[in-house]
């Protein structure tokens, strides 16, 4: 057992500071264990969210040594030995207190996405290969690390015109569902602000569920938007084939 120093941001929307704590570290410990120990023994009121402690609920998101991580999944032995461990809240969302931020914006965005609407003639016969893509997207645990790291939200603060990677993944899961009947491409192009994404892939880098957010969700959606709005040949083909095919690339 050894002692390590943790520097944890304490404060609220009016400001705060990093406070150092010494924690007894045992083998296999994760950052969240250390936070719990601090809570139990040194700072009863240290605010942090957590639930499952198994990387399945996505509650304990924070920035550990500047990197957006789930605290329950970040092993101490994977961090540089002998250095202080610095923990701060997600930077993209308003601070509530200590490591807790106000992520309610995400829930508002989710409400704007038209939900699953099965085709009236849906047979519900789907092969595994038909659902693999949607299943990958549905692994999302809504930790909002991708939203936090995305520079469109983090640096450019475009919350009013950009849904963020989490919700592109959600839209992709609906759009590629074999039984869904809705067309969400106009939403993607306009309100969701897909064009603001410049595919710099930080969302994919931080995803604790290893969802290939950029390659499997965002880029395929961008290509569908191209089909609909930018590709002259596709547009012409649709004109020739008539109105019915106008949903190509969407539904």
């Amino acid at each position: 057992m050894s002692i390590r120093t943790f520097s944890v941001w304490r404060g609220d929307k009016n400001g705060g500071r990093f406070v150092e704590y010494q924690v007894e570290v045992e083998e296999g410990m994760v950052v969240l264990d250390a936070i719990h120990q601090i809570q139990r023994t040194q700072a009863h009121d240290l605010a942090c969210r957590w639930n499952c402690k198994a990387a399945k609920c996505g509650s304990c998101s924070a920035e550990v040594n500047g990197r957006p991580r789930l605290m329950c999944k970040t092993r101490l032995d994977a961090l540089p030995v002998g250095e202080m461990v610095r923990i701060q809240p997600l930077q993209t969302f308003p601070i509530i207190r200590d490591l807790v931020t106000d992520v309610s914006w995400n829930y508002q965005v989710n409400k704007k996405i038209p939900p699953f609407a099965p085709r009236p003639d849906a047979s519900w016969v789907m092969l595994q290969q038909d659902v693999n893509r949607a299943q990958e997207f549905r692994k999302c645990i809504e930790c909002f690390l991708c939203q936090n790291v995305c520079h469109v939200l983090r640096e450019h603060e475009r919350k009013s015109e950009f849904f963020g990677p989490r919700f592109f993944v959600r839209i992709a899961s609906l759009q590629m569902h074999p039984m869904d009947s809705l067309d969400r491409l106009p939403l993607l192009k306009n309100e969701a602000g897909l064009g603001l994404c410049n595919i710099t892939k930080c969302c994919t880098e931080v995803c604790p569920e290893d969802i290939h957010i950029t390659d499997n969700a965002i880029i395929p959606l961008k290509e569908r938007v191209v089909d609909r709005y930018y590709d002259p040949i596709q547009i012409l083909l649709r004109k020739i084939k008539g109105e019915k095919a106008s949903h190509a690339g969407g539904k």
């Binding site: 520079h151 064009g195 994404c197 930018y230 590709d231």
Partner: peptide, 26 residues
Amino acid sequence: CAVGEPKGRCYRGERAFPFILQNFHR
């Protein structure tokens, strides 16, 4: 990732010229 950018730029992503042309990749 999670590193600051130069201040005071107007970000338009791939929604405006020139980067809207990326849509012609195909």
